[in-house]
Every structure is written in structure tokens, then in C-alpha cells.
Design a binder for these strands. Structure first.
Lengths: 339, 339
DNA sequence: GGAGGGTATTGCAACGTTGCATGCAACGTT
DNA sequence: AACGTTGCATGCAACGTTGCAATACCCTCC
């Protein structure tokens, strides 16, 4: 069924080595020979066996991308960009989903299943960064969107504190004072929510606005349903009475938007909403959603850059990098100035 | 840096073969030896080299999933399910994006880059099914959502004609007569849009309703922006004047919904909208979107089942299967009965 | 006590590829 | 004419793993 270098060599009447040279384009091969071999290659439909090549080379050309879930728009978009950027480096991406399960994250980092990938990009949820770096045994690891204790692993992310601060400040500037935060995740070791909460509080304090426990709402996951639940609980709580919501992800924001509509609240007149991630749905929401837009393309690109550096010069002693990727506030109708 | 069986064997004072037996759990190993070897394995943090294992076995345990794009919600959800189902079969998934490029689809099917995967699940856009099956040289292929000429390759999909018929009939039942179709793709070889168009026309004809060229709108791609454009052109065309829209994907429907809102049309009062795919966003749209819901989990599961059969019994002469996966119409507010 | 059967362990070879060293022939230079 | 150089082609070995077959050993049974 499948032909080896050996078969091609036999057909072309040359040695295996020569065929290999033709395939790889390396070494010296006479034009006449090259053509003869090429013809044999075409005739047999030769395709290199990558397992063999990888074994020989000690590299697989595969990198792993570990995300909590692929079906959510943010990670879908991100994965798409990583795959695209990896292609340009002739890498192939293996995508794993952990569904936020600590054991799954540990297993993938451990490489318990075996050494298959040359490097790993992971967006951890359940594991704290210390644990992530302890478990990364086999291959270089880049953390995506997580802040590890300095000096443990490369990391690529936006400045969550600053971004959350901007989003909240923007709401303050539009005249809102009781700004709720949706998206706290006290049960996760992942620190992203904490950072966004910090930025949110910073902005409120600086402006002398209300910092109120009743306005800060936890969620289990980051989907629309969680945002919807949080929004409902917020509206049901008389002590909350928000005039704006900063949701820590766009999906949460869209869930919140949904409930606001259901309850007959007008957005942005009665309630302003800002999200985070700039997923495509937000652009087409009713009304279009204001959001913090990380430069996702750069996020993917820089993560791969870090990985490439570690893979191609493993022991050059460069200390772990902390790459901050730019973001901007994408202002749309959902946070229009109060009339 | 990384330890081989050889290293473990040396440390434990046994042969390489015995270590291999311990790792794989096969063969006879005395309990005492097993423990000694296990200790050495742990101490050295042994991880099997999968390239070597794959070379030996002639299989890689990898399957390819080829989709046009990963960032669109439908394919994101689908990819998520495929990855999940593959894990249960101890397969790892490699995801490739073609962005609808014929050359990219051809290259991946050809395996020009080398034989890496044991099988391929492809959702073709640019290539017609004949070409798909001609180019599948290396590994078994399953077509996802495409109808190949009978007898060329396994295929897993919903019954697009029947589903489109149901969606259209539903709109007719709610009292609409001028039902537009958004999503024709005359420039693609992929036949999905054609099938949905057929179902749409069938339903109209059977009900004696209007079949009008002006109501059938092509799109370039299947994103919100394309749906928005098509909707705008529909509303700008006085000869169209639709009272309902059947969009061939939910994303198109969401784009159309967006434009309807912009133009001050009330949905569902002035215009009913039905989509196709049942992506999560549709559930949270304003108003929630009626849609044809394919059983995506089964789509993924059955595709893997086909692949498994071909991989594990390659030459058993079973003719290509045509697996039809169930769907249902998920009725939500966007197509509520006309008041 | 020797034959027979089972258990535990091992060595050899091969999967398909490429790095390295080497061989051979033809060429140009002194 | 002898020499070094270059271009082309080849053979050997190794990457780390596992299938197969062989070996060594111990125990049991007649």
C-alpha cells in the first residue's frame, strides 16, 4: 500500500541514500538522476513516513495547544490563530481540551501519554502556575494568559489589571457610578479573574466610586448561562441596583445582556455593559458590545515565538520571559454615554 | 535530558525488553522485578518516545480533522466534540484549517507533507467529493457534511434536504408566504448549500407558495457579515419584500437579524428568521433564534466510528457508508407565529 | 530421577529515515 | 604524468521501540 524509499530506489535503480537526497533536496545529485528518481517518486506516490523521520531527527514538528475548551468562541478564535501561525513555522498543532480539569492539565503537562510534542502552549485553569511549571517535564512550555510567579516559565498575556481598569474607567466616564463586576472565580487557581477584579477596583477607588461586595458576582464557568445567572442574581438583589456591568468575558456579557433584555432593561440607557475578549458575536449583539480587545493574533504569534526560541536553543539560559501583548478598548453601543 | 528504555534497564539491572514489558504491562514479569523496574521508571521519569513506538507499530494514533476554519462557532463546537470523542478512543487529533482553499484541501488529503495520521475527517468546501476521494491516498477518509457520489468514501451528515424542508415548512405554518433563502454558494463545489436550497424549494412548491429568484440570495462566506450583506440587499430590493428568512447557517441568520434590527424591523412580528446549525449564540440572540439542530455529538461520534472501522480492518471490502445523523427543529422566538 | 510444562528473562532484528564517512570517476592544474 | 579537487553515488549505523523466538530456570509428576 505505501511505498518506502527502498521501493523508489529499486524502481529508479539507485541507492536509498540517493532517493533520500532527492526528496530532501540536499546533497549532490546529477540532474539526470534527479529526474529519474523524481519520476519513480511520482509513479509510486511516495510519501515520507514521518514517524521514522521524527525518530531520526529527535523532533516531531508537533506542538500542543492545551485549552480548557474549544467550543467557546474565545478559545476557538485563539486556537485558529495558533494553528495558522504554526503553519507558517511548518509546525503542526495538536489540540487538547481539559474542560478545566486539574488532572487533565497535569497529565498533559507531564506527558504521561508519551513524548510527542516539541513544545506546549497551555492556557491553564485549574492549575496554579507553580504547579504548571513543576509538571512541565518533557518539553518547553509557554503559559497563555496566566501570570506565573516570576521566573518559572515563559508567559504571554495582556495586562489584565490595566485592561480592566480601562474598561471600568470608561464606564465611569459615561456617567455610571454603580458598576457591577461579573466573573469572579474564587474556586479556580488561575489568576486571571483576580487580576481583572483588581483593575476594576483600582479604577473605582481612584474615581471615588462605589466599591461594594454586592456588586461583585462570582460565576462557575465563563459561558453565557453563567453571565445570565449572575445578572439575574444581581437584578434580584435590591442592595445591588447597578447602572453598569463589567463582565470579565464577552460570553458572560452576552448572557447578562440577554437577561437585561428579558427584564425589560434598555441597554445602554438603563444599563451599560462592557465585556472582555472581543469575540465576533459581540460585534453582532443587540446592541453591539463594548469590549476589551486583546491583540489575539499577537498573542498567538508571540507564544509561538517563545516556543521556537526554547525549542531551537534549549539551554541558552535565557530567563523566562513575560511578554505583554497590547490591547485596546473597543467602544460600541452597549456602553454609550448616558443620555 | 530524556531517558530511554536502555537507561531504565541499566538502572534496574535488567534487559531493555523487560522494561518494555513492564511499561506495556504485557508478558510475564515477576512481581519483584516489576517493582524494581517501576522504581527505576519513576526515578528517571521515563516517558515513551512516541515517534519510535509509532514507527514500530506502523500507526501513529493520530487522526486529522480538516475544517475550513476553526474560529466560527459551528466548527469550533464540532472540533470540540471530535477531540472529545477521539480521546475516548485514545486517539489524538490534529486540526488543520483550509480557509476554504482548494489547494490546502488537496494538499492535506494528498498527505504531501508526509504520512502522519491514521485517518482523516474532512469537511470539504472547495473540493468536490469526487476530487476528495481521488486525492485521499494515504489514509482512510470520512467526509463530514458532504454528499459524495455514492460509493466513493464514507460520509456522515444530516439529511440537508429534509432539514431545510422542515425549516421552510415551519415558516409557512406560522403564516409566512414570502420566505427568502440566504446562503446560496454557487461558487463552491461543496454541495451542502444546494441541498438546503432544494429542501427549501420543495417545501415552497408543495405548499404552493412563492418560489422567486429575487428571494434567493447568494453569499461569499458563511459569516455574520455575509448574512448582514445579503439581508441588506434583500431589504433594498423592492421586488423581494420578504416576510421571513431561512438562512442556511446560524451565523448568516445572526447577521441578518442584526440588519433587521438596524432597519427597525421587528422580529418575529415583521420578519421571521430561521437558521441552521444550532450554535450556542443563537440561543442568546435577541430574539432567540429558531434553528435546525443537527445532533453534533452523534456527527462526531459516527465519523470516528467509521474511521475506526476503516483503520482497524482496512481491506474488508465494506462499501462506503452513508450515515445520516438525526436533526430536529429547535423552535424559539425568532419564528413565533404571526400575531 | 528424568521428562514435561510452565514462568521469567533475554537477544536479535526490524520499522523507515538520515548523518557521516567513504568510494569512485572525471576534471583541471602543475 | 601525477596530483589534488570536485561532483556524484553509495553503505553503514543509529534513532527507541516492540514482535518473535530462544534460553534459562524451577516446579511437578510419573
Amino acid at each position: 500500500m505505501s511505498s518506502r524509499l527502498k521501493d523508489v530506489a529499486a524502481l529508479a535503480g539507485v541507492s536509498v541514500r540517493t532517493v533520500s537526497n532527492v526528496v530532501s533536496g540536499s546533497g549532490n545529485v546529477a540532474e539526470a538522476t534527479r529526474q529519474r528518481v523524481q519520476q519513480a517518486l511520482d509513479e509510486l506516490g511516495y510519501r515520507p513516513n514521518l514517524a521514522a523521520r521524527n525518530l531520526r531527527a529527535g523532533r516531531t514538528g508537533l506542538i500542543g495547544l492545551v485549552v480548557p475548551e474549544l467550543y467557546s468562541p474565545y478559545f476557538g478564535e485563539l486556537a485558529s490563530l495558533v494553528v495558522e501561525a504554526a503553519q507558517q513555522r511548518s509546525w503542526t498543532v495538536i489540540i487538547d481540551q481539559t474542560f478545566g480539569d486539574a488532572e487533565a492539565e497535569r497529565r498533559l503537562l507531564d506527558g504521561t501519554q508519551g513524548r510527542l510534542v516539541d513544545g506546549l502552549i497551555i492556557s491553564p485553569w485549574a492549575l496554579g502556575p507553580e504547579e504548571v511549571t513543576t509538571h512541565a517535564r518533557n518539553a518547553p512550555v509557554v503559559l497563555l494568559g496566566e501570570r506565573p510567579p516570576r521566573g518559572l516559565a515563559d508567559r504571554v498575556a495582556v495586562d489584565n489589571v490595566a485592561a480592566a481598569d480601562e474598561a471600568t474607567s470608561h464606564l465611569l466616564e459615561t456617567g455610571r457610578r454603580r458598576i457591577a463586576a461579573i466573573g469572579l472565580q474564587p474556586h479556580l487557581r488561575n489568576g486571571t479573574a483576580d487580576q481583572r477584579l483588581t483593575g476594576y477596583r483600582n479604577a473605582l477607588r481612584r474615581a471615588g466610586a462605589v466599591v461594594d461586595d454586592a456588586l461583585e458576582r462570582p460565576v462557575r464557568e465563563l459561558h453565557r448561562k453563567d453571565g445570565a445567572q449572575a445578572m439575574a442574581s444581581l437584578l434580584d438583589d435590591p442592595s445591588a441596583a447597578p447602572d453598569a456591568v463589567f463582565a470579565f468575558t464577552d460570553e458572560l456579557a452576552l448572557g447578562a445582556l440577554h437577561v437585561a433584555h428579558e427584564r425589560g432593561l434598555r441597554v445602554p440607557e438603563d444599563l451599560a455593559v462592557v465585556g472582555f475578549d472581543d469575540i465576533e458575536d459581540g460585534r453582532y449583539a443587540q446592541p453591539p458590545l463594548t469590549t476589551v480587545a486583546p491583540d489575539k493574533r499577537q498573542l498567538a504569534e508571540r507564544a509561538l515565538q517563545c516556543l521556537a526560541d526554547r525549542i531551537y536553543s534549549p539551554d541558552n539560559g535565557v530567563p523566562p520571559l513575560d511578554v505583554v501583548v497590547p490591547h485596546h478598548l473597543e467602544v460600541r453601543t452597549s456602553s454609550a454615554r448616558k443620555p
